[in-house]
């Protein structure tokens, strides 16, 4: 089983909201003083891939697209147990939209050779769009199953539990297929010391656009169908009415009385 997992380097979504800043001139966000991480939803996809590999054997190739990707960040999936890493790391990829990035990823997947399954996170924690997986499936003409919480492979058929708001759907699909993975799949494993050592020895393969059959002008900002007009932080007025009292119990009583008086409860 050849498994491809697409992951993204993002600003750390778990950092305190106070460190989140927008550079208005560049229309770009950053986490002040906090290093970037592998997108948490991508880690769920890596975990899903590792479980499929454990159940039936295979190889996991991780692909990441970006500009100046930090090796210590993008190597995390290797430390978790993935086998190979391909980086689409070049200035030409900068500024792409969902379509541009998915197109480059799809061309890289084709070049990487035979594959049975392509895994992506359900969405990335920065764009919160959830379009990369569906886009790759449309570009490569493959079946697409989104929001997986359980993946089983049996007789070259996929059987997937797909999360929905009242439970889950059981979906069957032939391989190869694109699957996006939801957090309900369960906590991604931590890299082991052995895994970290092994990851150190693996050199990532780096592909520029021309390596995957795309002209430099055929990716990144040049191919945007969607343009970012503005990025801003919503403002909340701080008007919280705090309960008074000398002890937590007194404050609790004060809150109950207040809510009753305000006819909230």
């Amino acid at each position: 089983m050849n498994i491809i997992v697409c992951v993204k380097q993002v600003i750390d979504p778990e950092a305190p909201p106070a460190s989140f800043k927008i550079d208005a001139a560049k229309n770009r966000a950053e986490m002040h003083g906090v290093p970037p991480v592998i997108d948490p939803y991508g880690e769920y996809a890596v975990e899903a891939g590792l479980r499929v590999k454990e159940a039936g054997g295979g190889k996991i190739t991780v692909i990441s697209l970006g500009v100046n990707l930090l090796r210590e960040v993008v190597k995390k999936p290797l430390a978790m147990g993935a086998d190979e890493l391909i980086l689409l790391d070049d200035e030409a990829y900068a500024g792409g939209d969902s379509w541009s990035n998915a197109y480059s990823l799809a061309m890289a997947i084709k070049k990487a050779g035979a594959f049975d399954m392509i895994l992506c996170g359900r969405e990335a924690s920065d764009t919160n769009a959830g379009q990369t997986g569906p886009a790759i499936s449309e570009i490569l003409g493959l079946p697409c199953i989104t929001l997986a919480r359980k993946i089983e492979v049996k007789d070259s058929q996929l059987r997937i539990e797909r999360v929905n708001s009242s439970g889950y759907d059981v979906i069957e699909s032939p391989l190869p297929a694109v699957v996006t993975v939801s957090n309900e799949i369960g906590q991604p494993r931590y890299p082991t010391v052995k895994g970290i050592m092994a990851a150190k020895k693996i050199e990532p393969v780096i592909w520029k656009p021309t390596d995957i059959g795309i002209e430099a002008a055929g990716t990144g900002a040049n191919t945007q169908r969607t343009k970012l007009r503005k990025l801003f932080q919503p403002v909340y007025e701080g008007k919280c009415d705090f309960a008074a009292g000398d002890s937590p119990e007194e404050m609790a009583v004060d809150l109950a009385v207040k809510l009753r008086q305000a006819k909230v409860l």
């Binding site: 600003i11 979504p13 909201p17 989140f20 927008i22 966000a29 924690s125 920065d126 764009t127 919160n128 945007q224 169908r225 969607t226 343009k227 970012l228 007009r229 503005k230 990025l231 801003f232 932080q233 919503p234």
Partner: peptide, 13 residues
């Protein structure tokens, strides 16, 4: 976007 830390205005061309 960014898990609700920010909002973005997009235009599709």
């Amino acid at each position: 976007v960014y898990g609700g830390n920010a909002q973005a205005v997009f235009i599709t061309e």
